[in-house]
Every structure is written in C-alpha cells, then in structure tokens.
Nucleic acid binder design. Structure first.
Lengths: 225, 225
DNA sequence: AGGAATGGCGAGTGACACTATCCATAGTAG
DNA sequence: CTACTATGGATAGTGTCACTCGCCATTCCT
C-alpha cells in the first residue's frame, strides 16, 4: 500500500508518518521508484504500536524509537528484551536537565539533591536484598526509588526502605502476573511486542487502578463526600 | 527571609522562584515595601513541595498549581482532598490534543479511537462492580483504564476487564496501604500534604518497584542473561 | 553616597512533537 | 499524450512548555 492508505488505515496524518519515517521510528517502505515506496501490514502494525506507546503511555519519540529498536533486536530473548526496555524507559518524571540549577547551598544541609543517589541507593539495595530480588543497582528504576525516598524525607515524611516493603511485596506479585502472561505467545515477534505492551503500556492503567481503589477506600473510611 | 535566601535554601534559582510566584504556584511573600517582600518557612516548604511534584513526579506546572490549590482548600477533609487531587491528576500520557487527527477511516474498522471510551467505560464499570469499588465512572482514571483496554485489543492482544482483575486486587491492597498511612498525622495541613505526597509522589516509585520486580522475575524464569 | 539586591514585567530560549510548504518525479484518468 | 493528483524527500515553521534573561525604578545596606 502507499502512504495515503497507510495514513487512512492508521488514522495518522501523512506528515506525521513522514516524520516517523525520518526519525527512524517506522522502517522505510520497499522503494519501487525514486518517489514511490510501498508499505505492508507490518508497517501498519508498527504504526499502531508507535501511536500506543506515544499516545497512551506517553513515551517520548526518542524513547519509543529505542524501545522499538530493542524489540527488533531481541525478539527471540524475552529476558534480554525486558532488560533493554527497562533500561530504556524514562524515570517517569519530565526529565531532569543535566546542568545544576544552583551549585553552592553553603549554609543549609537542606538543599537535598546532591547526594540523594548515594545514600538512597544503598537503601534500595537493602530493600531488594530483603525481597530476594537479584537486580543490578544503578538501574533507572533503582534511581527513582532512591530519589523518591530522599525526597519524602526532605519534605519531612518519616520514610525509609522498610516503609516500602509492603509495596515491594505487591509489586513482586504484580510482576509475577506480568511474566505469567508472556508464557503463551506464538511467534517471537508477537511475544516481544506483547512483552512491551504488557509491561510498558499497562503502566498508566495500573496507576489508574490504584487511583480508583484509593477513591473507593477513601470513601469507605472518611464517609462518602 | 528575602528571595535570595529562599533561593539559596531551596536550591531553586531566583528567576524560577519569580516564575512560580507569577504563575500562582507559590503565594506572594508579605510585602514590606514596593519592591520588598519577605518569605517564611511555609514558602520554603511549599517550594520544596513544588519541586518534588514537578521534578520527581513529573507533573506539569499547571497541574501542580491545581493540586496545591486543592491542598489549601481542602486541608481539613482528606476524602474531599483526594477526590479533588485524583480528578486533577493527568492521565499520565503526554496529553492528547483535542483536534481529531483524521476523521474518516471509511474502509477499515481498525482505526479504533472514536468509540474507545464508550465500550471501554462499560468494561471498567464491570470491573469496579466486581471489585466492589464504589467509584464514579467518567473519572480520568476510569478513562485511562478503558483506553488501555481498547488499545491492547486494537493491537491484537486478547484482553478484557477480567484480565485486569488480579491487578485490581493488588491495586486495592496498595490503596489500602496508602490510606493506612494517612491515619496518623498531626495537623490538617500536614495530613493534606502527606496525602498528596503518598498518593502522587509515590507513583513513579511504585512503577519503579514493579520494574525491579520484573527484572528479578525475568531473570528467574528465563535464566540470568 | 553608592553599589548590590529586589519586585515586577515583557521578551527570549531550547526542547519537543509535530505541521506546512516546496520540489522534482511518478502514477493515472481522460 | 496531457492534465492532474500523489509521492518521497528536504527544509522551515508552529505551538506549547518550563523556564531564563534583561530591564527598570526603587530599596537595602554599609
């Protein structure tokens, strides 16, 4: 099919498809002439996947490109694929610029940003040890947990890795559920895509379920406002 | 204290503080002259909270403003506060522009975006009914779950609300944990802030815990790559 | 007295995700 | 064979966001 049909069937505008082609999100079609290429169902499928990752999950275009590259590269080894993808995913916070906003902070020890990772990461190590998780530290996920812990304390909340243990327990079961669903999959590409969908695309939905449950529990405890 | 001290103690640059003041994130200091105001610890505290919501959680400036306004307004009723905050929080995906990209999609029924909410929301209703959750439909969280369900199916994954039940079960316990931690809090402002911190700020950390657990389980099942 | 700091304002910046316009060529309906 | 639309490729422009800068008339502080 040509680009106009691809656009019509995917609901993505032609300029946007061209943009994805240029940025390497979508592989080029088979060229039939200098200004003619044709696309097949794999392009359509890929385009839908792109739109889901960007539109539903909220990944940036570059993160999406990296994730898709990982899918293409490691489609036969789900473990390696997950490792790649989990390393690629952003920390789910806007994205910290590198330059330090303010360097000094001489008087107060309250600045709380400089050595957040140092002490926080050792706490995460304690948490993963307690859980029996064999995970490499320094992974983005560990950084996020460490930073959150530090931030909560800087804001005066009495929190340490032990406070997160119950959550870790629930996360463990959630992950077990996730992995269960990858067992049954036909071909490698299907399984690779499914792995990405069920780990990455499900994230907003899981947060949303937590919010629904919070709403319910809040009403239960504090009376229906 | 004056703005320079506020900046030094918070680690936020003066121009940024001015920007937050202008945008109503930070209440103005007590004016002592035409070009002089002084700030107190509440401003410092608020500024740290702002930085956490924006920097750690990744909220937009306007969402942060709304959340803070809710905290100030409903600091004595945690249920109402949570309701407000849960209604304010974005769906955690970039943020869909309103204008439809492509209207027609005549031939294929695969476009899958138009009536996503319609059938999806009834599924979410089934899910919440099964869970015994008394939540209002049409809440952003319900929309996200509905949209995710639709998207997964559009991508060929066999998924419906029943598939989410185990996750909902875990989300329910997570929310129970969350609410437990709000029981002990001294003054209303403390509790209101704590509610926001433990529900909003914890979100990235919970996803991170899931990723750590996924890494572990993946290694367990597929052998340590 | 005089240099530094302040508040308040408008304008500028860089990143991001598109979106629009060109152009030379290719398909295609008459 | 011709007029007309569509295509791929490239360059430039748009709107939003979260700051960041520069300016100015005070005001502080020494």
């Amino acid at each position: 099919m040509r680009i106009s049909e691809l656009s019509r069937r995917s609901g993505v505008s032609i300029p946007t498809i061209k943009y994805y082609l240029r940025d390497g999100l979508l592989p080029p079609g088979r060229a039939t002439a200098a200004n003619q290429a044709d696309y097949d169902d794999s392009h359509l499928r890929r385009l839908r996947l792109i739109r889901s990752l960007i539109g539903v999950r909220g990944l940036s275009v570059s993160a999406t490109r990296d994730v898709l590259a990982a899918v293409d590269k490691q489609r036969e080894n789900v473990h390696l694929l997950l490792g790649l993808v989990l390393g690629i995913l952003p920390a789910d916070r806007g994205g910290e610029p590198e330059g330090s906003t303010q360097a000094d902070d001489t008087s107060a020890p309250a600045g709380a940003d400089a050595d957040a990772d140092v002490s926080g990461l050792s706490e995460v190590a304690a948490l993963t040890a307690e859980m029996g998780w064999k995970t490499s530290p320094h992974t983005p996920a560990a950084q996020v947990v460490a930073e959150t812990l530090e931030t909560l304390r800087a804001l005066g909340v009495d929190y340490d890795w032990r406070s997160l243990l119950p959550y870790a327990e629930l996360a463990d079961r959630t992950a077990a559920l996730d992995l269960d669903q990858l067992a049954d999959a036909s071909d490698p590409l299907q399984q690779a895509e499914r792995a990405v969908l069920l780990t990455v695309l499900l994230e907003p939905a899981l947060l949303a379920l937590r919010r629904l449950a919070q709403e319910h529990h809040s009403a239960q405890r504090y009376g229906g406002g």
